[in-house]
């Protein structure tokens, strides 16, 4: 096969599709390298191929009170291995209302003491989650409410933008953290493909300061991809015990009520968020490719806006779902 024919063969499996002219017009992205758009990111020392953007939005998020949560969890006798719905009922009739009551039971006492022992007097969030996750469905509102056991600064929201559908390079990682009254968003952008490695290293450091992750479809997609891309660069990500994937909760909560569970649909129908001139997710890879080819930062602006809205909506969604979880607790 000669080289020109090889190029033809490769072309079919290569580059991202060009964004349509309408899409470009809509966003006001010029075709050629443009001098108008200036990105005001910060370059982290030691990572020349990344830019970081930080923003702070007032944000008020209340978790259900810990004592209320604890009160409802200790009543769940079936959290003890060997106790099912029937036996719970039986024990309750015998006067064993809570796991604490059970610690004196001749048969179940030892198990109950051991279980409560792993949780500790202050209720260690990771230990409680391990138990809840074993016995409750992944979409149980209690699993969200239990985020209240985690110190709020150790909850990490995250969202990715990638160059393709699967196993493609990651070029943007957004993370968000809670303070008492605000949401701190940080976006790490790779300004060339060489920056991916630094993004992953930085995200790895974020994980060390996190006890819980919050994502949308992150268990199936984002986390898997992060692990895969890290392995690609011979890095490892330390696993985080608690991962609240809000997609599971949305599916359960809005089953049959919404046409689909895309984040955009949730925003419109549940969160009341209106996006203006938003870049559709499907065009994100081609916009970034356009940037790589032209060197013009213009296509990056809509990507950053889109991604920041995604992560803000993620926090809003958690608040909406927690409202319901508070009732449950």
């Amino acid at each position: 096969m000669r080289n020109d024919r090889l190029a033809g063969w490769l072309a079919g499996r290569a580059a991202p599709q060009e964004p349509s002219q309408e899409a470009k017009n809509l966003l006001g992205v010029p075709d050629k390298a443009s001098e108008e758009v200036v990105l005001s990111g910060v370059q982290e020392p030691g990572s020349p191929d990344t830019l970081t953007f930080e923003s702070e939005t007032p944000f008020d998020l209340r978790f259900p009170a810990v004592d209320l949560l604890q009160a409802s969890v200790v009543r769940m006798l079936h959290l003890l291995y060997g106790i099912g719905a029937c036996r719970s009922e039986q024990l309750r009739r015998q006067g064993y209302e809570t796991l604490a009551d059970l610690t004196t039971h001749p048969q179940w006492g030892e198990g109950a003491r051991a279980l409560l022992g792993t949780w500790g007097s202050t209720w260690d969030a990771e230990a409680v989650f391990r138990t809840l996750r074993t016995w409750l469905p992944a979409s149980d509102p209690l699993l969200l409410a239990a985020l209240g056991l985690v110190p709020r600064e150790r909850i990490l929201f995250f969202d990715l933008e990638t160059l393709g559908l699967s196993n493609a390079p990651i070029f943007l990682i957004a993370t968000a953290r809670l303070t008492d009254r605000a949401l701190l968003v940080r976006q790490d952008l790779a300004t060339s493909l060489a920056g991916e490695r630094s993004l992953l290293t930085r995200f790895g450091r974020d994980l060390e300061k996190a006890t819980a992750l919050v994502s949308y479809n992150g268990k199936a997609f984002d986390w898997t991809l992060l692990r895969e891309r890290s392995a690609y660069y011979s890095q490892s990500l330390s696993p985080v015990e608690i991962h609240a994937d809000l997609l599971y909760h949305v599916r359960r909560r809005f089953a049959g009520l919404l046409p689909d569970v895309h984040l955009g649909t949730i925003e419109k129908n549940v969160l009341g968020v209106r996006r203006a001139n938003d870049l559709p997710s499907s065009l994100v890879p081609s916009f970034y490719s356009m940037y790589l080819e032209t060197g013009s930062p213009a296509p990056l602006r809509p990507i950053l806006d889109h991604n920041r809205q995604d992560i803000e909506s993620l926090a809003l969604l958690l608040r909406a779902l927690l409202g319901e979880a508070t009732d449950a607790a």
Binding site: A15, G164, P169, L193, A194, R197
Partner: peptide, 16 residues
């Protein structure tokens, strides 16, 4: 064809 990109870590695959 845009399928390989050179980075300091080596040439990486970047197809869609």
């Amino acid at each position: 064809s845009g399928l390989l990109a050179d980075t300091p870590s080596g040439a990486i695959y970047r197809g869609l």
